[in-house]
Amino acid sequence: MAIPVLKASALTKRFGDFVAVNEVSFEIRPGEILGLLGPNGAGKTTTIQMLLGLVTPTAGSIHMFGLDLSTHREEILQQVNFSSTYISMPQALTVEENLCVVARLYGISDRARRVNDIIKKLEMEEFRSKITRKLSSGQMTRLTLAKAFLTEPRILFLDEPTASLDPDIADKIRSLLKEEQRASGLSILYTSHNMREMEEMSDRIIFLQRGRIVAEGTAREIIDRFGKADLEEVFLKFAREQRQAS
């Protein structure tokens, strides 16, 4: 079995008395797309924030490419990137300027070529000179994805990347992600509230509920284990249980 590119062991985060993530352990293998599912407040975003070094875990460890995140932050983050519906980029800069800044930040040497390539790949030519403030939500999502792809990461964290996109663009983004994954062996941690998308995209899925992993496997395995018709029914079961418990 291939050595995992990411290994989270007994990852825990407490905010005072509230346990946001509770002894979560998982691995991502090279070229794998791992879906992270769970109702709001299940601990998905906190988990991703810990993996990105934005939140310090209360306990547990994170290793990527065999390195410990707590001691090798810079080397690890050089090979990792993320995109989320909930972030933005400097509004007064053009799309191209923003991508140039990111390229500098990650020390990319052939900046102009790489920025051009990514703009073409994500079909952003028509708005490459547009001020970011004036982008539509779909264009903004493409910009944050471009930012994530630009640095050619080995692991990509995608937090609801298609949430604000129309079905056509969302489909294009999914195809692109699959294509990138096949071409470069990219590993992806993916969250979405679109269950059909999760089934289509993920090689494996982890279900979180109240900060704990409650199910793990392929979409089919999880659906069969809980005797439900599809992933959406499994999601509803966990979401309702979480709401009743709180």
Partner: peptide, 8 residues
């Protein structure tokens, strides 16, 4: 988030 999740 973009900055602090980068190697910066």
């Amino acid at each position: 988030m973009n900055l602090f999740a980068s190697p910066l």
